[in-house]
Design a protein around this nucleic acid. Structure first.
Lengths: 380, 380
DNA sequence: TCGGATGATGTTTACGTAAACATTATCCTT
DNA sequence: AAGGATAATGTTTACGTAAACATCATCCGA
């Protein structure tokens, strides 16, 4: 619709700064618009009415141009566009939202961006949402109590949000149902609330099974496990699959060692395991804890993978550069984010509320150098 | 409008799993409100008018109650509150924003949440903003081109946002000035645009100086450096301070090795450095690259810190569990986030637009086990 | 040449909130 | 007891947008 119209008869004295140059014709004129009111505080926003006045049309016509509706003659459209540029007009999304009852915004509730998984998932959510014209509103929860979760959902309900994606431990989700206003859709990550909500998640069990099988296939008699925190559904799920896989194979199930995702907890577990003579293989519920294990074994002179094999979970970028490079379960966080957005948008478009169901993203195993067959002398 | 719909008169067999549990007195009544319109699509939102009607007052009184204004007699207030609960009323933030011309939202523009620093900073921003009643709207930029940055700022301008925090490489900031509507405030991280914007950042130079001094004080003749990407202001700044510190001390300045923040690039640099006989100390521009260095040195049989000392930058949680635990410059990302929010709020409240200036957060050195005096035979 | 179809544009209205102003009831002072 | 202050509540209006409807001009076919 653009530059070829440049010769409509507006006037001679307005500096037409959009002659043919590539980018952003906005810059020069926006500045000009700003200087309209010389002394005092300029009017904060430029509204359609302002544009309409300058262009000599009704504000409805401005609206039509703004939204690309048909039925505006080219010369008029050009005049309006020129006026928009001149004044630096931007549509006011609050008014739009009020009008439409829709905000084009997705709320995300989560505990911490500190964990790799969360931040990558959020990033993917933001990226895909942006591609669909949605923005992301973030509410982090510092202390994970039911009250705080409830509060976050309440705030989301008050905010201009069409849907909520909650990346949240399941046990905190119990009382939440009713706090959201009707019409707001929910998708949940890291939870098995598939009976109540749309759930998207990495297929934790699948990943854990891959890890354990890999170690068993290498000839290890059994596999020890360092768990994530008890409050995490992902951790629980991985531990369950670890146990199930061992049991299916008829292997003894050693007592799981409690961890909390941190390298420190992995280190502590590693110190304990270094003293277990029968231990030749460990599956850590995430890469950080695997890192702690590696360091503990290194300190205690237990070589990896010579004496002990270690498998992690997540495949954080660094894990390929651990000493030794870590064999780990690869999670596709980007895909999780993508599917969250897809689900949420489907709900918004259907007008349907969160329909229960679980959407699992498969994992894969990144085999590197922290795993090997057990040492010859090991109890097999 | 989700699960609470489940017990509108569908049938009796739905298990009521929320009888009498602790929180949310809202639950029961919110559900009632939902069933108002039996057949068709219920009215999406409950407005003040609805509450007013039910409470038998004017909507203005509801507004007063909603905002905690004085001048409402207790009995009336109670009636209104009851009606609010009954209907599950929530203020509509879009209408509010339209009315006030303020959105209580801060926009954050950034490249990637994948880097530890960014995600921690964003988290801190979100937390502190939330404490002040502000929400965060996130726009990530997948491909860092000027056009995309411009686009992100433009979108922010259209969104309901009172201010923008940009965590962005400086060189992409050039054309941006004019794209934001007047009245939107800007704070920038990771940039030296202090002449044009409010800048908050870690004191990169201070941190780099600490790292280099530490190594020189241990007796190393000079310090090698693995840089971050050329596009990063932080990387540039660290490299500059590294060079300056060496020059001040009258030491030779070895050629810097190019990195890109990734462990892989650190690894590559490490392989190169392992062949440099004179190299006894390396300062990596971040911890990931330091990790790569450690692995390369380990592979090449160069002991750390026996033969070579390594210092990183960031102090990511894992770095204490590297082999060996990494001496590194600690960045206070949370403080950076806090100050961003403080600056932005100050601007909003002053009504002043972004006033130039730079606010630097100091660093500290976390001394661990990857640094030691140079080996006895080393050239000194 | 006229009636009606079509296309371009204008006018009215509602979205939900809250400031500004208007009204009514109540209580105190003299 | 009357007048005036004060407190409690109601009414009107504007915020910026866009759907719905209304108006006007133009063009076409019979």
């Amino acid at each position: 619709m653009g530059a070829e119209q440049a010769d409509t008869p507006i006037s001679g004295d307005v500096p037409r700064d959009d002659r043919e140059h590539t980018g952003t014709p906005i810059s020069g004129s926006a500045r000009r618009g700003g200087s309209d009111i010389p002394g005092g505080r300029r009017k904060q926003r430029v509204s359609m009415a302002d544009v309409a006045k300058l262009a000599g049309v009704s504000s409805q016509t401005v609206s039509r141009v703004s939204n690309g509706h048909p039925g505006v003659i080219d010369s008029t459209r050009e005049q309006v566009l020129a006026a928009m540029r001149e004044l630096g007009y931007r549509p006011n999304s609050a008014a739009r939202a009020l009008r439409y009852g829709q905000f084009n915004t997705i709320g995300v509730i989560l505990f911490s961006l500190a964990s790799t998984g969360n931040s990558r998932t959020v990033e993917a959510i933001a990226t895909h949402a942006a591609a669909e014209g949605y923005a992301i509103t973030l509410i982090p929860i510092d202390v994970p109590t039911q009250d705080n979760v409830l509060g976050a959902f309440t705030r989301m309900g008050e905010l201009a949000v069409d849907a909520v994606i909650a990346i949240i431990e399941i046990y905190l989700l119990d009382t939440v149902t009713v706090t959201l206003p009707p019409g707001v859709h929910v998708v949940v990550v890291d939870s098995d609330a598939g009976d109540r909500y749309s759930v998207v998640d990495t297929d934790q069990a699948d990943g854990a099974r891959r890890a354990v099988r890999h170690l068993l296939d290498l000839g290890h008699r059994t596999v020890w496990h360092v768990t994530g925190p008890r409050t995490s559904y992902a951790a629980l799920s991985r531990a369950r699959a670890w146990r199930a896989t061992l049991e299916e194979a008829g292997r003894p199930v050693p007592p799981p060692l409690p961890g909390d995702w941190s390298a420190g907890s992995g280190y502590a577990a590693g110190l304990a395991l270094a003293g277990e003579p029968g231990c030749t293989a460990v599956f850590a519920a995430n890469d950080q804890m695997a890192l702690g294990l590696l360091r503990a074994f290194h300190e205690r002179g237990r070589t990896v993978p010579g004496e002990i094999s270690v498998v992690g979970f997540d495949d954080i970028p660094d894990s390929a550069y651990f000493v030794p490079p870590l064999t780990t379960v690869h999670q596709d966080f980007a895909e999780v984010g993508r599917r969250c957005v897809r689900q949420v948008l489907a709900q918004i478009r259907d007008g349907q509320s969160s329909r229960p169901g679980t959407d699992l993203v498969p994992t894969s195993l990144a085999v590197r150098q922290s795993t090997a067959p057990p040492p010859a002398g090991a109890t097999s």
